[in-house]
Amino acid sequence: MSKPQSNKRDVSGWLVLDKPYDMTSTQAVGKVRWLFGAKKAGHAGTLDPLATGILPIALGEATKTVPAVQDGQKVYRFTIKWGEQTTTDDAEGEICARSEVRPDAAAITAALPAFTGEILQTPPAFSAIKIDGERAYDLARAGETVVLEPRPVFIEALRLVAHDGATSALEMTCEKGTYVRALARDLAHHLGSCAHVVKLHRAMVGPFGEAQAVTLAELEAAADRDSLLQPVTAGLLLLPEVRLTPDQASAVRNGNPVLLTGPRGPVALEAAWASCAGAAVALGCVEMGRFKPHRVIAG
Rank of each mutant, 00 (worst) to 15 (best):
T88R: 10
G83C: 03
G60Y: 00
K81I: 11
T122F: 08
A62N: 04
A38F: 04
F115T: 05
I57V: 14
T109M: 08
S127F: 03
K40A: 13
P103L: 09
A91R: 13
P113Y: 07
A97R: 14
K19T: 09
Q70E: 13
A107W: 01
A58M: 09
T87S: 15
D104M: 01
T109P: 00
I54E: 02
T109F: 01
L15R: 06
D104Q: 05
D104K: 05
L35E: 09
C96N: 15
S127L: 05
L47K: 04
T88M: 11
A58G: 10
Q85V: 01
L59T: 01
T87K: 10
E94I: 13
A106F: 07
D71C: 10
T86W: 04
V29M: 04
V32N: 01
T79S: 14
G93S: 12
A114M: 13
V69C: 10
D48C: 07
T52Q: 13
G13H: 07
A41L: 00
V101T: 13
Q70C: 10
E100K: 13
A110I: 12
A106P: 06
T46E: 04
T116I: 11
I108G: 07
T88H: 10
K31F: 04
P123F: 07
T52K: 06
D90L: 03
S99Q: 05
F36N: 05
W82P: 00
T79C: 14
L120F: 13
T87F: 08
T24G: 10
L55V: 08
A91E: 13
V101Y: 00
I108D: 08
F36S: 05
G30D: 12
A51R: 01
A128G: 02
A107R: 15
V32M: 06
G13L: 10
G83Q: 03
A51T: 05
I57P: 00
T26G: 00
L120R: 14
P123Y: 07
E61W: 01
A110D: 13
D90I: 00
I57C: 04
L15Y: 07
D22I: 11
A44G: 10
G53D: 03
A107H: 05
D89N: 15
A97T: 10
Y21E: 15
G45I: 09
V16C: 14
C96W: 09
L112Q: 08
P67W: 01
A110N: 11
V69G: 03
T122V: 15
E118K: 14
T86R: 03
I108F: 09
F78H: 07
P67S: 06
F36T: 10
T46Q: 05
G42Y: 03
G42I: 11
A44I: 05
P123Q: 09
T88N: 11
A91W: 01
A44Q: 01
P124M: 12
G83E: 02
I119P: 00
Q85L: 14
A128S: 13
Q70N: 09
L50Y: 07
